[in-house]
């Protein structure tokens, strides 16, 4: 038997170990990650810095930012502290964004994986359902659900989660379909592996990259949808939310524009952070980039 020398070892031992490094080498990845970390820090520190209910009236209304050092971002027309609102609002936005995206992820991945793997009638039936969801504009759909169920954090989250998954399902289906007919899966079947093993151990890990990228975009769009709902007055009335704050400030936009603009800026930063992160993840998870690196 011939002696074989191993091919020149590549610098990283495992394909995954260099992942964070690759993400951090891309400007979009770094900026996205930093912004997101900042928002998470804001959300985490809210109960420490502002232990009181952000919906309480704490000072005189219409205090402009900088006017009173105790309220650096000023107060709104009801005398509520805007800084406190933004800090607490971050908690609501992140919570709804993360949970709604998880719901979408779960439904979308399961639907796409089953449709792509089994094909035939399963595929036809599942894709029919997906199309049904896709024909209704997701925002209007979410709006209708919240209007019927009464706005609260669980209903809003659910409404966003069950309307945002179809595009993900299609993406996962396409990826799974590609792998399903490839030699990777054929080899596993030939070894005697069962369907569940093949899907969970071989197919899903190899479709993870597009799923992770979509996840960050899903969180961003969930935050945006929640803000839009709150802006229209369909937010949970018992918690403060960025969208709700923008909605409230809308009436005094001409005179006291900071009331709507500051929480609006928070939304922009959060969505931007997640989109940048998605961009960076996309590059970092690209297997071709992996080889180049």
């Amino acid at each position: 038997m011939s002696l074989i020398t191993l091919a020149a070892p590549t610098p990283h031992a495992a394909p995954r170990s260099g992942f964070l490094w690759r993400l951090l080498r891309r400007p979009s990845g770094v900026v996205g990650l930093l912004l997101l970390a900042a928002i998470i820090a804001v959300a985490a520190s809210a109960p420490l810095l502002y232990p009181d209910d952000p919906l309480d009236m704490v000072a005189q209304p219409f205090l402009w930012p900088g006017q009173d050092a105790a309220y650096p971002l000023g107060t709104d027309m009801m005398g509520r502290d805007i800084a406190s609102g933004i800090f607490h609002g971050a908690r609501v936005s992140l919570l709804i964004g993360a949970v709604a995206a998880s719901v979408s992820l779960l439904i979308g991945t399961a639907t796409g994986a089953l449709a792509g793997y089994y094909g035939g009638r399963t595929d036809a039936a599942l894709m029919r359902v997906t199309e049904l969801f896709q024909t209704i504009p997701p925002f209007l759909f979410a709006l209708a659900i919240v209007a019927i169920l009464q706005p609260s954090i669980p209903t809003i989250t659910l409404a966003i989660g069950i309307t945002a998954w179809p595009s993900l399902a299609r993406l996962v289906r396409a990826e799974v379909l590609k792998l399903r007919n490839g030699e990777l899966v054929q080899a596993s079947i030939a070894l005697g592996a069962g369907d569940l093993r093949i899907i969970v151990l071989h197919i899903l890990p190899n479709t993870l990259a597009p799923i992770i990228v979509s996840a960050s975009i899903l969180v961003a769009s969930a935050i945006l949808t929640e803000s839009s709902l709150a802006f229209l007055g369909l937010g949970d009335p018992n918690v403060v939310s960025w969208g709700g704050m923008v909605g409230a400030g809308r009436e005094v936009l001409r005179t006291d524009w900071y009331i709507a603009t500051l929480p609006g800026l928070a939304i922009v930063v959060a969505v931007l952070a997640l989109n940048l992160l998605g961009d960076g993840l996309n590059d970092a998870l690209d297997p071709k980039g992996e080889r180049r690196a």
Binding site: P15, R16, E183, Q186, A187, A190, L191, H202, N206, P287
Partner: peptide, 19 residues
């Protein structure tokens, strides 16, 4: 029965899970 019959594929790049 699959234990008794196995297969070697043409493309050694495609049939092995890279992860």
């Amino acid at each position: 029965t699959r234990r008794k019959v196995q297969m070697v594929f043409q493309d050694p790049f495609a049939s092995l899970d890279p992860r």
